[in-house]
Write a protein that binds this DNA or RNA. Structure first.
Lengths: 93, 93
DNA sequence: TAAATAAGTTTATTTTATAAACCATATTCT
DNA sequence: AGAATATGGTTTATAAAATAAACTTATTTA
């Protein structure tokens, strides 16, 4: 049985990637609200996804406030699709 | 975002449930081979699924050797289907 | 009869996820 | 102006999980 990419097999990381699959980019606040996660947890998980090269993070300023913008990478997109395929075999879909 | 049943959102437990969805019953050895897991890990995960009422475990003897047979319960079947539905919203399927 | 194998269980270790605490800046209230 | 509050996060600590290693009991096999 092929193993599920552990980086994606996590509720919050999967939710984040799922959102980024459908949207050109998303900032920290949006992701936090959409996923109903705490900032701390989100921060950690974004770092992991970023370290893996699944998404890229740009830090800008919106007016005077910091803004963290995330977008999925090609590699991330591929990994997500791969994960879905593997999952299908688990779910009998 | 609805949360994914943590009992099913685990690689090994999901694999086990997936198998039990398609097969009347399966014994310990079969599950271990099919999932390529260690006996220790499998034992722990089967206990959890059993405690949750997702599967039932019968201990018999096959000749002189013990045999642990598992089958999915109605509740387990429902939980699995529910998990799949929830997951769809994450995966945009 | 001693060593190896089978079928598990229990305990220990590592990894993960999550939450709590914290930091820096900006804004609002008195 | 200075204190309190909000914003947008990061870092550190805690709780929960997954996994592996060690152990148990019985059974074959050499």
């Amino acid at each position: 049985m092929k193993e599920l990419d552990p980086l994606l097999h996590s509720q919050l990381r999967l939710a984040v990637m799922s959102i980024l699959m459908t949207v050109e980019e998303a900032d920290f606040v949006y992701l936090r609200e959409k996923t109903e996660s705490t900032a701390g947890n989100l921060s950690v998980q974004l770092d992991k996804l970023s370290s893996a090269g699944y998404l890229c993070i740009q830090k800008e300023f919106a007016g005077k406030r910091p803004r963290t913008v995330c977008s999925i990478t090609l590699q991330g997109r591929k990994a997500f699709e791969d994960y879905v395929d593997t999952l299908r075999t688990y779910l009998n879909l």
